[in-house]
Nucleic acid binder design. Sequence first.
DNA 1: CACTTGACTTATT
DNA 2: TAATAAGCCAAGT
Length: 117
Amino acid sequence: MKKVLPSGKRDADFFEQVYQVVRAIPKGRVSSYGAIAKFLGTGMSARTVGWAMNAAHGLADVPAHRVVNRNGMLSGKMHFGTPTEMETRLKAEKIKVVDDQVQDFDKKFWDPALADW
DNA sequence: CACTTGACTTATT
DNA sequence: TAATAAGCCAAGT
């Protein structure tokens, strides 16, 4: 893993901090941009996490489909190859998706701060 | 270097 | 409860 940056400071590798968390999301679970941003600390915002996802969509080991917004809505589905890819991937992991929203989101939600790293 | 844009979130009306 | 505003921060223009 890359070095952990001092609080409030960032560099070009800040994407990897996001990737590390996203990769750690257990199969069949989801998380949110805000939760990841909060976990990573000061200087990070939900928008920044979203930007990191945008840059991560090419990496096979970064399951961006498991990251949704605070309401459990698939806000990033249109950024995949096809608008249905995100939903399809989630369903493949037994995550129910109806009308672009994760069902039982509060149960599927995975908080990085509660992980046993 | 200033302004705009966007896979967000929270507070206010 | 729904619509709007404001705060947020990196990258692109």
